[in-house]
Amino acid sequence: MKKIIKKKSSRDYLLFVMGINTGFRIGELLDLKVTDVMDEEGAFRLFLDYENKQQPIYLNEQVRRALKLHFQQKTPISTDYLFQSSRGHAPITRQQAYRIINEAAKHVGVTEKVGTHTLRKTFGYHAYVKGIAISLIQKRFNQATPSDTLKYIGIDKTEQQKIDVNL
């Protein structure tokens, strides 16, 4: 999916990469502005302070590479939305974000339902498989119980999970 989206648009690729690497809700992603990810000197921030999050969100190397690619193709203006619509100064809509993700999934043959929440769930699933405590993922997702979070990310509690801890 990444390759398909990357060929189409650096903005859409950035949306996908940020979605699967930060765990943001789609509304949170679409609210981001250039100043949220880039400082006054033009350097990418390592952490994103978002008003609804208790802790800053780490922008890993994959996100910073996608930002670099996007800003090589589009000169950033600090007041612009990060995922700005081509039809004005507003961000793309939630519906447009859904279409971007859904069309890429169909293109690669995914038959299951895929949408913007899939990005967030993917983040949670991979965090869990890599050994991040479900309580931390639950906190990031602001969910009531660990079992809610496990269900949300598609983990069967009775199933034995292999955990990859790479320190």
Rank of each mutant, 00 (worst) to 15 (best):
24 F>N: 02
140 R>P: 00
74 K>E: 15
103 E>G: 00
103 E>L: 01
68 K>H: 12
62 Q>R: 15
159 E>Q: 15
129 V>M: 15
78 S>C: 03
87 R>F: 02
89 H>K: 11
31 D>I: 01
98 Y>K: 06
96 Q>C: 05
123 F>P: 06
86 S>F: 13
40 E>K: 09
139 K>P: 00
79 T>I: 03
146 P>L: 02
145 T>K: 10
53 K>N: 10
113 K>F: 06
48 L>P: 12
120 R>M: 01
74 K>M: 14
105 A>M: 04
95 Q>G: 10
64 R>L: 07
14 L>M: 15
105 A>P: 14
90 A>V: 02
130 K>W: 03
39 D>G: 02
5 I>E: 05
23 G>R: 13
19 G>P: 05
143 Q>C: 11
109 G>N: 10
10 S>I: 01
39 D>L: 10
72 Q>A: 15
104 A>T: 15
58 Y>M: 04
145 T>P: 01
94 R>Y: 04
135 S>R: 11
31 D>H: 09
125 Y>P: 08
7 K>V: 00
53 K>G: 07
20 I>V: 15
69 L>R: 12
159 E>G: 00
40 E>G: 00
17 V>C: 09
113 K>N: 13
138 Q>P: 04
78 S>K: 03
129 V>P: 09
117 H>N: 11
161 Q>D: 07
12 D>M: 08
129 V>K: 15
6 K>P: 06
129 V>R: 15
32 L>R: 08
